[in-house]
Nucleic acid binder design. Structure first.
Lengths: 346, 346
DNA sequence: CTGTTAGCGCATTCAC
DNA sequence: GTGAATGCGCTAACAG
């Protein structure tokens, strides 16, 4: 009815208690008698009272709000992390403020120089974020608890998989089947590109282990969506000089794009070309995609739980934790032994 | 270096001004001399000062934060709206707090009874949200500016398309090609299901206009993802008693699932079965999908702009606006005239 | 145009 | 266990 917000003072008056007691009773912080607790709760309910986050934050220093920083939303990995993490965080009473970087340097700067420092968030969950030294220093300086998914980062807690080993596993699967001309659709490397920790590195290593020379023309790096993965695969598969018998895509979305491209070229998957991805995408079963499942929901759940733990801990007790999850090769129907007499494509 | 936050007071001292002047200079609210502005900005920069959102919100009543309420993240329509809207909002200095409903009634209740009332957000952008009377009453009572995308709702501003006409357009396209046995993959109806404003209604109307009897066995309602659209289409297409020559899916994701299902059954799209969707999905070109483009990014942009406008306006001047966008039939290669001698499937 | 003052609504000291 | 007072950091009147 009243469009004005109900204050704790009104609740206190109605309950016949002091503001302090009501505050303690409602927040659960500090000892309060059972009667006081009941009285407060009832008065609050009757008045439709909910504490103002801003006032509570200002007074207590905690805002019950975490920032979720993502480079994209419209990609399976990220939207899945967002859904999972926000569910876990909400269950603990946390709001989630979404910082979508949108690829723009400017937005990114703004997020780091402004938003994150304004004490609006108690903690940060960063997904696949490559921070430069200055940004990392900013974060550590502010002292905000940070958990990163999908990146290794000194000083902050991380949840990740071994990208190198994962890619090696996927590539080795193809090699074990007998493939030698294996193309790779991968991510563009960041600044401090490190072959030893990346998917591209795992791919190269698996080839080298098997004594297969890396063919640069079969390595396509970009920042692919499914549509771009489709386009890249189409180019790869329709170039008569290349003739890959298998494609290893750094993400399931790219892999699905590749499968679709192959079909559109009249090629049969897996008879004419095998395809393997990484992720454990929900659509994997539909496309019969062989993939390395990286248990994204589990990663997101662990990361959120980790952050919640850091938030509960005393500022001094916040040792960075590095959790690394196992991955699992899931063999479906998009990979098989290479076909010797594959029709020349297109 | 100091992990303690810099306050406006310190900035004022350093700049040799009063806190009030610095506040005005930095926020841009109120008249300040050019020198004062420069001095404040410089001192703030040197100290690395950023205003505390919570304190500012508490004092001013505005939090520069809007809530974005979505039923899903992991679906193209929603993730696209999230990316677009948050970009527009961020450009105006607004943070975006994401309320993911996650299908759960409990989360939903919590969002409405708790979060939204805590004055943490200045406004609300609700996507495809069916509010019941109590929830709508809550919102209006609190007086928070609300913009809804994809729903008509008395009392609050909306940005939407004409779902009925859109579905009718898609169906009519198939009918014009000569199809008569047209299946429909549609959304499960909400409580106050209204045929006159829904996609299912438009489908039924188009059929009836053409004198085609609606075949209940060709109508499949659910709450489909691409994977479930795949499964539904597979059932539809492999049942020899049904033999639809075309499928109209209420979303592009379902339509893409249907195309994939058809291919897996050895059916050619569009020769054996035509498929049309609604959305304007990024993957449409890849799958050659004929669709009705509903200009999602434009919808999201307009909705965000509308909300920004409401936020700027005086509380009294906030007349609900109802924007309805045009849609466009985009004919690609997934639809054609029906094939008389389609092979009996499977 | 600028400085002074008084809250915003709550959590949290302290006394009791 | 409870109540009264203090202040979180800032903006919005009010004077000047």
């Amino acid at each position: 009815m009243s469009s004005k917000a109900v204050t704790i003072k009104e609740v206190a008056e109605r309950a016949g208690l002091s503001v302090a007691t009501v505050s303690r009773a409602l927040s659960g912080r500090g000892h309060v008698s059972e009667t006081a607790r009941t009285l407060s709760a009832q008065a609050a309910r009757e008045l439709g009272y909910v504490a103002s986050y801003n006032a509570a934050s200002l007074a207590s220093g905690r805002s019950k709000n975490v920032g979720l920083v993502v480079p994209w939303v419209n990609r399976w990995f990220f939207s899945t992390v967002i859904e999972t993490a926000s569910t876990v965080l909400a269950a603990d009473g946390y709001d989630v403020t979404l910082y979508y970087l949108g690829g723009g340097k400017r937005e990114r700067d703004l997020v780091f120089s402004d938003f994150l420092l304004r004490k609006r968030v108690d903690g940060l969950l960063a997904v696949s974020l490559e921070l430069d030294d200055a940004e990392r220093a900013d974060l550590l300086r502010v002292g905000t608890p940070v958990v990163c998914i999908g990146g290794v980062m000194p000083g902050v807690s991380t949840v990740s998989i071994d990208d190198f080993a994962t890619a090696r596993l996927a590539t080795a699967h193809l090699i074990a089947l007998g493939h030698e001309r294996i193309a790779h659709l991968g991510w563009e490397g960041p600044g401090d590109f490190d072959l030893a920790t990346t998917r591209q590195g795992g791919y190269a290593h698996a080839l080298s282990e098997a004594g297969i020379a890396l063919a640069p023309e079969l390595l396509v790096l970009g920042d692919f969506t499914m549509a771009e993965g489709y386009a890249a695969a189409k180019r790869l598969l329709s170039d008569p000089r290349l003739c890959p018998t298998a494609i290893f895509a750094a993400s399931d979305e790219m892999a699905i794009g590749a499968i679709t491209a192959a079909r559109d070229l009249g090629l049969d998957v897996p008879r004419d070309v095998s395809v393997v991805g990484i992720d454990g995408h929900d659509l994997g079963p539909v496309f019969g995609l062989t993939t390395v499942d990286q248990h994204v929901r589990e990663q997101a759940t662990q990361a959120a739980a980790l952050l919640l733990g850091l938030l509960d801990a005393e500022p001094g007790e916040r040792e960075p934790v590095h959790a690394e999850l196992e991955v699992d090769l899931v063999v479906r129907t998009s990979t098989m032994v290479p076909n010797a007499d594959r029709p020349s494509s297109r």
